[in-house]
Each structure stands twice: as C-alpha cells, then as structure tokens.
C-alpha cells in the first residue's frame, strides 16, 4: 500500500498510535496496580499511595503466602485436575472426532452420531439436574467430578472433525490398500498431520481446566479439596475466610508489613503467572486454529 504522507495522514497516525497506546495502558493498568499493591507495605497501600509502582517495596505478602499451606494445596489439586482433565478430554475428543469426520457413505450412522453430539450444545438440563446427575454417579468430592462431566468438548470435537475432513482422502485410501486399519490411520496419519490444531485445542483445554472454579465450589464438599480458582473465589471474591486465621508466630512477624489486601493481591498475581507464561503461545496457535478450522468460508 502506497505510503501517503499527507498532513491529514500524519494527524491521523498521531491520534491512532496515541489512542491504541492509551487503550493498551488502560487494559494493563488494573494488573499493574494489583501487582504494585502486592509488593507494597500495608500502610502505603491503605493510604492510597500505590499507583503503578510499589511503595515501601516488600516481598512480605508473598512470603506469607509461601508460609501457609492453603494456596499450594489448592495449586496441587489444580495441577492434578489440569493434567488428568486435559489428557482425558483430548483422548475422548480426538477418538470421537475421527469417526465423525467420515462421510455418511463411508460410515453409516455418522450423521446420527453427530446430531447426538450437537444436540448437547443446543439444549441442556440446567444447573440442578446437572448437579443431581453428578451426585447420582457417586463422584462428588473427588477429582473425577472435576474431569468426567466436561470431558467431551463438543466444540473442540467439531473443530477437529472439520480439520480432519480437510486432509487428503488419498492418504487414507493408500493406507487401506497397504492393510492399515482405522486405528493405525488415526494414530499414524491423522494425528501427526494435525499437530497445530491439536496443540491449539490442548492449550485451550488446559486453560479451561485451570480457570474453572464453579464446579469446584459446587461439587467439592470441603474447601480443602478446592482447586486453586475455587479456593481464590472464597478468599478474594466472597471474602468468607479470614486471611489471618490460625496464624503461627513465624507468620505473625510479617503482620507489620502485610494486610488482607496485599496478601490477596499477591495471590491474584501468583495465579496469573501460569497464564502469562502460556498465553503468547496460545495467541499464536489460536490464529492457526481459526484459520484452519472454526471459521469456514
């Protein structure tokens, strides 16, 4: 595109860059403020002195979180759930996407099966029947309650099946001639050819599990079994547990520097770090994902 350098273009560019920079700053501002609060002394935070930079810099709030068990117990449960949940979900979803990607001619019954899947997007039973069903299957208060009910990701399944369908038919036919069966074709041909889209779907599944909080609160009986986001919901949002309950003498020594607010800010930031580490990759794969599968023209 030809670079016009008319006066109006220069004015537009100044405003455009300025506006976008301001917008980015506004989007980032809440995170920077909370980070600064988490690294500040409690009196500075309470006096409203903390803007984007810590005042009376201290790691005390983080030290306090590290001295307590709650955060890391919940983190452990979250990691278990992410690993088990994402593995199970990917296994079930890929296994379902392959047969569904076949033509009705090649796999009679495929369209009926596909509608059984799609109907669950269109209609659901709602909160109470969902809870009752999980209760009836006897998995309440266990890790299975967090991974089994949502294991089949129908949207991801559709994304994968649409991608599978775009793969050259000739590969499959040649493999059949060589005596391969469907298991080998899925494992040896389809999966290796789909790594970008599989990476996208896996990352989104992982982030989905990491971010889930409501199921933990509803399906786990005691807060000791909560995954991280559910634990944080009770601490940071509902505020029904006191930050400084059952405090021991070592932890008490930090009290001159920390407050409820700075400790909460520290926990919020600590739970954000894993996402900060993976989301630039997510963004890259996500672009690949939308080009490959979801938006078809």
């Amino acid at each position: 595109m030809a670079g016009q350098t008319s006066f109006s273009r220069i004015v537009f560019n100044i405003f455009n860059y300025g506006f976008l920079a301001l917008l980015s700053l506004m989007a980032l501002f809440p995170f920077l403020n909370v980070l600064a609060v988490s690294l500040s002394n409690k009196s500075a935070a309470a006096a409203g002195l903390v803007k984007l930079w810590p005042v009376e810099f201290t790691f005390a709030s983080y030290r306090f979180v590290f001295l307590r068990d709650e955060f890391f117990t919940a983190l452990g449960i979250s990691l278990e759930r992410v690993l088990l949940g994402a593995a199970l979900s990917m296994l079930v979803t890929v296994l379902a996407a392959y047969p569904l990607s076949k033509e009705e001619k090649a796999f009679p019954g495929r369209t009926l099966y596909a509608w059984i899947f799609v109907f669950t997007i269109l209609f659901n039973g709602g909160l109470i029947p969902w809870y009752m069903t999980i209760k009836m299957t006897g998995i309440l208060d266990s890790l299975w309650a967090l991974v089994l009910p949502g294991a089949v990701q129908v949207f991801n399944c559709l994304l994968l099946l649409n991608f599978f369908r775009g793969l050259p038919k000739a590969l499959e036919e040649a493999a059949f001639v060589d005596g391969a069966n469907h298991w080998t074709i899925l494992w040896r041909i389809f999966i290796p050819l789909s790594t970008p889209v599989l990476a996208t779907v896996t990352l989104f599944t992982v982030v989905g599990h990491w971010n889930s909080w409501f199921d933990g609160i509803i399906l786990m009986n005691s807060p000791n079994h909560y995954p991280l986001q559910s634990y944080l919901q009770t601490v940071v949002v509902k505020m029904n547990t006191s930050t400084f309950a059952n405090i021991d003498p070592v932890q008490a020594r930090l009290l001159s520097e920390i407050s409820d607010r700075t400790v909460k800010a520290a926990q919020i930031f600590m739970a954000t770090i894993p996402i900060l580490l993976v989301y630039p990759f997510l963004q890259k794969y996500f672009m690949a994902g939308i080009v490959l599968g979801s938006v078809k023209e």
Binding site: F123, N124, G125, A151
Partner: peptide
Amino acid sequence: LLIYSYGPITG
C-alpha cells in the same frame, strides 16, 4: 455424553 449431558436432560 449419555450420562453427563443426556442424564441432566432427563432430569
């Protein structure tokens, strides 16, 4: 799906 999606629909 039968258990955790269609179960609640029956519910």
